[in-house]
Structure formats: structure tokens, C-alpha cells
Design a protein around this nucleic acid. Sequence first.
DNA 1: ACGCCCTTGTGAAAGCACGCACAAAGTGGG
DNA 2: CCCACTTTGTGCGTGCTTTCACAAGGGCGT
Lengths: 231, 231
Amino acid sequence: MTPRTPRPRERGIPEATVARLPVYLRALQGLNERGTPTVSSEDLAAVAGVNSAKLRKDLSHLGSYGTRGVGYDVDYLIYQISRELGLTQDWSVAIVGIGNLGRALANYGGFGTRGFRIAALLDADAAVVGDRVAGLAVRHIDTLEDVVRGEDVAIGVIATPAAAAQGVCDRFVEAGVTSVLNFAPVVLNVPPGVDVRKVDLSIELQILAFHEQRKSDGHAADRAERTGSPT
Amino acid sequence: MTPRTPRPRERGIPEATVARLPVYLRALQGLNERGTPTVSSEDLAAVAGVNSAKLRKDLSHLGSYGTRGVGYDVDYLIYQISRELGLTQDWSVAIVGIGNLGRALANYGGFGTRGFRIAALLDADAAVVGDRVAGLAVRHIDTLEDVVRGEDVAIGVIATPAAAAQGVCDRFVEAGVTSVLNFAPVVLNVPPGVDVRKVDLSIELQILAFHEQRKSDGHAADRAERTGSPT
DNA sequence: ACGCCCTTGTGAAAGCACGCACAAAGTGGG
DNA sequence: CCCACTTTGTGCGTGCTTTCACAAGGGCGT
């Protein structure tokens, strides 16, 4: 039985690598638009803002698509990364919560690059339902299940207030959505098999504040140590 | 080096921990609003969506603020985490790019929780300058340097089109900003000492698409293998 | 005052991720 | 045809993260 299973590229790509592939892809598309036919790991790494060894290792997880002494063919690599990320097919996306953020997302044309299609915009507010945003009419949240099933929505985007997020998420999951992108500042609870990624402005700001504080009081002031360590 | 650094709580908090502190903080504030006086690591971990051992280790980096047999005092822990994150002081934030996204950010009232103050909204488009958004008048981008110095802006938020992002970033840095939150889909280049965090919709979607693809073709169809691996 | 029970704080182990440095592999010139 | 040069792909050491498992510590009932 298959004497040698020459699995040069095992079906297990590290999560850290997956998170960087979109960055490489975008960098490559930029090079492509400028007519660059091939690129070395060194150059691509510079554009993508990573270490070249890391880039090579990341790409090696997809297979051996480079040519030693030359570099990588830009077009081919774009294709390979796109395929690996699942962008050679279109994914239907539904956005719930058409407030400021929801509108911004809907108008964020060309979702990165093709690969995604906004199937529907949903909101609970009757005053918003019917509005045309980014060429689509906003539908009532009650149609969520119909939309998900009818449009074969794979990815649900939650841009509602925090209080409504879990409820919307539950309905998405119940209707068969298995990937959720959450912009609401809450930790969503989902059953196994459902992926959730979150984008959270205040968390990012707080992380920056932490480092900023380090820089200012780094060694200078305070050390207030009112932490209760009287020693 | 120095295999035994008996410094119980060195002033070096792991980055992974820093990234989770805001989540704990939010969870604690939720408990606080519901009047919960104390919470065990087990319960808090459940609300925050993490493993309880991880939570305890994270908190241990700040000091020993728990009581064995009881748990953590919610108020006290909120205070300690806030202080560690630098939220006991207010940070001035300037937002550049008052399009759909910029408006959404500006209106995202109570940035998570206090600790941040929107010092100014800036845009390059004369048609937008002068608009009132979230109670502030949009100012022209040319005033960026004045705003940063005058309002002592510590954190710059970039919500411009990709093409303008690096230029705005350079101006921020030049004016003395050392923390940048970037929503534009480009890799920003900054000198050492400046922190950049990015929030990128399309990257998140692409990561979800990757996993989604794994689920669908996981074991079922295709195995198209047009990857050019003829065994 | 004593002892039981609960929960924290933390060694230690396992797993990942990163980056160096180099052998392998392919190109182009002579 | 051979050699020198370029760049990929990767083995390996290092450090960070996560998780387990448990001793130490503290409260509460009797």
C-alpha cells in the first residue's frame, strides 16, 4: 500500500502561517500590478514586513513553488496562495447590523480581493430596513435564516451592538453558518466546529496604551507600587 | 542568561498576556455591573473564553491579587488591570480618514471603557472638513502636526484609503506619535520605538475562508490535487 | 481553636514559533 | 561542459506559550 507516502506538504499548515498568507498575497498582488514577474524571498519579505527565513518557511508549507537562484513566479504564487486560502471560490457573506460600522464594511468594496460576495445586509431597526447600502437593500433580521439558507452564506459578520451579538451569532450557527467574524465587543459562545474571529477596536487601543505607558514611565516616574507590596 | 533571576514579578509581562488583559477587564466590568463582588478564576475564565490555568498565570504576572479559597475581588482586579494597561490616565487619540470607517470609529462611544479621548478628526477631503462627527468638527489634514503637538496625541488611528496610509503614518511619527492603529490594508513602515497594530477585515475573512474550505472539502469531495504533484 | 475544603499561584512538561545558517539546486557566463 | 553565483528549502537551537497538576494558603463551620 502506497509504499512511500511522499507527503511533501502535509495537510497541516500552522495557524501562524495561515495568518500571514493574506499579507503575502496582498504584497504579491501589488508586485503583480507593477509588472514584476518574479520575486525573491528577500524582496517579498521586505514588502510584507517579515523575516525572509520565516517567509520561506511559510511558503514551504504549501509546497516547493520557488526556483532556486531565481525566486518565486509572482503569478503562480498568487494562484497557489489563493487556492490554499480558498479564494478560488466565492464565499457568501452576510452582514448583520447596518450602523456606521456595518455600512463601512458593506462599502469596503472588493473585499480585499475577490473571493467574497456580500449576500445580504440585515438589521433589526425598521428605520434602517429598506435603505440601500452599497447597492443592496437592507433586509430585516427576521429573514436571517432564509438568507443564510437561500444564499448559502458561509460567513456571518456581526456588526451589532454588544448586547445583540450573541443572539445573532446563535441564529447564524443554528442556520448553518460555520464561520463568524465578530466586531462586537463580547466573547461569543459557539459550539465546536464553528470558527469565530474577532476584531476589537478597544482591545487594540488598550494594547497600544500598555506599550505607550511603558515608553513614558519606562524607568522614569512613579513606580508608585501602591500594589500593596510593603516589603 | 542569568538562569536564576529570582525576580518574582519582573516588569516584563508576556505579550500574549497583555493581549488578553483587555478581555479580562471587559469580563470583569460585566460582572461588576451585575453586582458580583468576587469571582473565581474558573468562572472568570469561562466568561472570558479561556482556560482557567492560563488566566491564573496571566494574572500572576501582575501580582498576587487573589485570595485562595475565595477568588478575586472584582473591583480590585479591575483597578489593577486598568492600571497595568495604562487606563488610569487618558490617552489622546487622533483619527485620520473620516469616511465610513472613520465615522464608525468616532461614534464608537466610550472607547471600550474610558481611558481614551478623541482629540481630533482629520481628513484630506475639503468636502468633509467642517462636518460635525460625534460632536467634533472635522479638521483638515494639514493641521495634523498642530493637533498632535497641541493635544498631546499619543495614539494615531489611520482609517484612510491604502494609498494614503503610509504618508499619514510618516507625518504622525514625525510629529511625535509613537503608537499607531492602522485600518488601511497596507504594511506600514515605521522606525524603531513606534508601535503599530493593524486591523484588517480582508485578512480576517481570508483566514476564515481557509478554515471554511478545510471543513467543506475536509474529507468529502475533490482532492483535486491539481497542485502538480503527479505522485 | 481545629481541621476540612476550596482556590490560588507556580514548578515542570509539552508544544509552537522563530530565525540562523547552510546544503541543495538551479542559472548563466566563459 | 564546467564553474561561480544566487536563492530556495530546511535541520536545529532557542525562547515563548500553553497546559497540567499540585503544594501552599486562607476561609468557614463546628
